[in-house]
Simulated assay, not measured.
Amino acid sequence: MKSLLTLITASLFSLQAMAITADEVVDKANLASFYAGDDGRSQARMIIVDAQGRKQTRQFSLLRRTLEKGGDQQMLVFFSRPSDVRGTVFRVEKKVDSDDDRWLYLPGLDLLKRISAGDKRTSFVGSHFFYEDVSGRNLKEDNFTLVEESDSHYLIDAKPKDPASVEFSSYRVWVDKTNWLPSKVEYLDKQGELYRQVETVQIDTIQGHPTVMRSRISDLASGGYTLMEFRGVQYDLGLPESIFSERSMRQPPVKYLR
């Protein structure tokens, strides 16, 4: 009996030791969401729907290059449609140890505009996505707690370390155990009310990487939403670091956008 109790106790301690932590879940979800392959290219369309059901569209090409897995990245977004945003370029130098550097090029004015850290949670070219949604939020800005584990998902609760820097009080993330991609994110406002929701609509496996092909962000206060759709996704193209530059914002690297 003593030996049996010892074995049971040892097994329990072993299970506890193997239990995954909230930070481990978040790290895996971050890698799956933003770091598939060494680099990547895709075409995308945003369908923006307001509370009255009126629709706008935005089409763009996206180039992304990873400098270090889970670390710094470079990103370029080239808008092609409609005519009022054609030629607009969004560039990101993503950094894990400091604020990201973000720029927006407006061709009509030949203006290169730096996006301040305080503006990262504002509308991305009129959509319900924020600038921060496109490149990903820095994991060091939040504290994470593993709230629940089911057969299919981990539920993570996140609270900002600097509450005054954001419009939300917390957010919850459901991470799919099969692919480590977030299937849903819910944001709570300062009063603890749900006001914003991100949903993964479609996932395809491309070159061995589970990839979000359709997602939807809803503004639950206004009733509007934006649907993001991707196509032509490719990974590991060998994109050179030199194209992720200010020069490419004015002279797009057409060779790598096809």
Rank of each mutant, 00 (worst) to 15 (best):
Q73F: 04
S169W: 05
D162R: 15
D157W: 01
N30I: 12
Y225A: 01
R91H: 12
A221D: 10
I47T: 15
E141D: 09
L139H: 10
G40S: 15
V89I: 00
D38P: 02
P160R: 15
R91Q: 11
R81D: 13
D27G: 05
Q251H: 15
T226C: 01
V166G: 04
I48G: 00
Y171W: 07
T21W: 01
L139M: 14
E193G: 14
Q251L: 14
P210A: 03
V49N: 03
R216Y: 01
K255C: 08
D119L: 11
S127D: 00
R58Q: 04
P182Q: 04
T226S: 04
T145M: 01
Y235Q: 12
R114L: 04
L62S: 13
H128N: 10
M213I: 08
G87I: 04
V26M: 10
V85L: 05
Y105I: 05
F90D: 03
G118D: 13
F60H: 03
L7S: 15
K190I: 08
D99W: 02
L237Y: 10
E241K: 10
W103D: 09
S218F: 00
S183I: 14
T145Q: 11
G71Q: 01
K120I: 08
S222P: 00
A164C: 03
E149V: 09
S42V: 14
E199G: 04
V201S: 05
L62D: 12
Q16A: 11
S150G: 08
D119H: 09
V92H: 01
S169D: 09
W180G: 02
T88Y: 02
F168V: 02
R137N: 01
Y235I: 12
Q207M: 08
Y35W: 02
V49A: 06
R41I: 08
V26S: 02
Y256H: 03
Q16H: 12
G71Y: 00
R172P: 13
M249F: 02
L15R: 10
W174N: 07
K190H: 08
S242G: 11
T226V: 02
E241W: 05
G40D: 12
D23R: 10
Y235R: 06
T211W: 00
F60Q: 03
S14P: 05
D100W: 00
K2Q: 10
A158D: 07
T9E: 14
G208P: 00
H209G: 05
S169Y: 06
L5F: 10
L106F: 07
N30V: 13
S98H: 04
I8K: 13
P182Y: 07
K161Q: 12
H153F: 12
S183T: 14
G108E: 12
Y154T: 05
S98L: 07
F130E: 09
R121K: 11
L106C: 09
F244W: 04
Q59C: 07
F13H: 07
K190N: 10
V85I: 08
K2P: 03
Q191I: 11
W174I: 05
Y131C: 08
T178F: 04
R65K: 09
L12I: 15
E24R: 06
S170D: 13
L239V: 01
I47S: 09
S116Q: 09
F78D: 03
R258T: 08
